[in-house]
Write a protein that binds this DNA or RNA. Sequence first.
DNA 1: TTGTATGCGTTATCAA
DNA 2: TTGATAACGCATACAA
Lengths: 349, 349
Amino acid sequence: MTMLASGRAPTIIEVAARAGVSKSLASRALRGERGVADETRRRIHVAAAELGYRINSAARSLARGRSGIVGVVLNDIGNPHFTGVVAGVEAEARERGLRTIIGHGADSPPELTRQIETMLELRVDGIVVVSSWTPVDVLARAGKATPIAVVARLATPPEEVDMIASDDLSGARAAAEHLLAIGRRRIAYVTRSTSATSDARARGTRAALNHVGLDLEVHRVEREDSGAVARILSSGVDAVLANNDLMATEILRVAHEHDIGVPDDVALVGYDDTPIARLLSPALTSVNQPQRAMGRRAIECIAERHDGRSDAVRAWYEPTLLVRGSTLSRRSDAAQAATGAHAARRVAV
Amino acid sequence: MTMLASGRAPTIIEVAARAGVSKSLASRALRGERGVADETRRRIHVAAAELGYRINSAARSLARGRSGIVGVVLNDIGNPHFTGVVAGVEAEARERGLRTIIGHGADSPPELTRQIETMLELRVDGIVVVSSWTPVDVLARAGKATPIAVVARLATPPEEVDMIASDDLSGARAAAEHLLAIGRRRIAYVTRSTSATSDARARGTRAALNHVGLDLEVHRVEREDSGAVARILSSGVDAVLANNDLMATEILRVAHEHDIGVPDDVALVGYDDTPIARLLSPALTSVNQPQRAMGRRAIECIAERHDGRSDAVRAWYEPTLLVRGSTLSRRSDAAQAATGAHAARRVAV
DNA sequence: TTGTATGCGTTATCAA
DNA sequence: TTGATAACGCATACAA
């Protein structure tokens, strides 16, 4: 005999009645405002506790005009890259007394749009969109209603939104230069996505190759086409730059299945430096983005908008190449790599 | 000159005024109710579109008494196991016209509690808690306010909540019997968690070993103690059953680093059958739980509660052992494994 | 088919 | 220090 919905949830009126005060006084006491006698305040808190009172945030945000909640819309929960950004967002939000709720975009523009719409209807105080897949017109419209900070690269960011990104071109260029430095010449870029992010990474890679008179192969593989990766690997390439760590992980698996040595036959580089990168064998060379810092910055942007800023932020963070086993077979490689010139900082791990 | 907060957001009153009707009529038209003349309905929709009207869900849920939203509180976004459950929850919720928002528990009981509290204040129509870490008294209290479905094993589930779990004992037992069938004798269970889930898996493993007169070593490793796994692996064990795939991934990496052959020196089994399991090399033998089905069931439970059910659901799903490379080195192993008797279904992949 | 009036639970303004 | 009262934006029962 669960007492679920034992009638409705208690309201502040019932708390006030039980404490023998008016509802306005109860409201002030429960919010912790001053101007309530200590003894009265105590009675009110006791009454609230006894009744199991819990504020109705719908009523509160209706009366207040703001919710104290920021929404975080993620492109894809399954990708650990987003987890890092979320950690930063949550840390900064908490320090500012904001709560966060997450919407899952399921890697699809319509669903991302739906999630943003839900957040707007909830009248959140701002939205952090971690995706470069969201239609820009959706962002522009949403940006008229509430502060929006996009943590991703947008090809043409609307002026209504702030954008926090890392420099994919320079990150990819650093990775490519590293591959060149260890003597690789036939380099392929492999992606599954067509986002602005993936595009910029391909361009950065190509720029580095063109610089030394080489050309880049770009392969877009469909999720259904399970043989595509194997074909690429056996086509004679000696290095592969993957769109992100997830893609790289899959490539590594296919390489193992086909007895293609990594890095001896094919050097492999990921992107995002997610936790899996260092869990693979060989550990994956990858380009790190300061995810937590970017997440924190998003909340700062939203707060600044509330404080009146009206011009758009375009914040660029510098990526860092992390060299690991998937591109370093021999000592000599390591030595060579260390001498290469790179656009982004590089660290051997 | 962003027009952010160009005054406030338009309300239904402004829509009604622009369309030249009363707000109640506008309300009905926008909700798609019948009993509104076609031409009138059209005018109202046009007015809404022109104004960029968007319903205020705080006002709506205040008036209606329900929000149309279910909350999903996840133990840890970074663990792909939860991603699978979320997919099921979202699919079923959408089919029923419910929206979902996600709260991140950050693998910590206080944060899980905070997230549940936030959901309750938002007056969601139900909460799916995917965690066995949440304090049961919190669940019990929350269950008095709104339907709660826990998708995880709870040691002592409160009668106020529904529980959807898979049979960890039988899953772990199947894994252990498989290890015995391929000739392993010194088997260790390695975990980082102390949840009811991990506990049940250890017990299941031990049961299988005891059955043939062997004993189980249980190792709890701290996150800080980076050498612990290496010590376990070099202590002479010939098989390791990990708490989950994440733990197994880490064990695999340490094995590679120390040139310990998997499965030749040490056979390795994970749990949850997350996407990484098949991306590792060797691919990871793991115990699958029907995550999507469990997620869907959670929403069904919540709907049933709304329809008046008051007794608690205790739904158990049968796990499936998926045998992959991390426990199969030679053909003979495969043959032996196929003959073993198992409590759970088993599939070779 | 359309409009009027009331209530949802809270905050905030103004008196007492 | 306390209380009465008017919003907040929407849904709905009831009238017209």
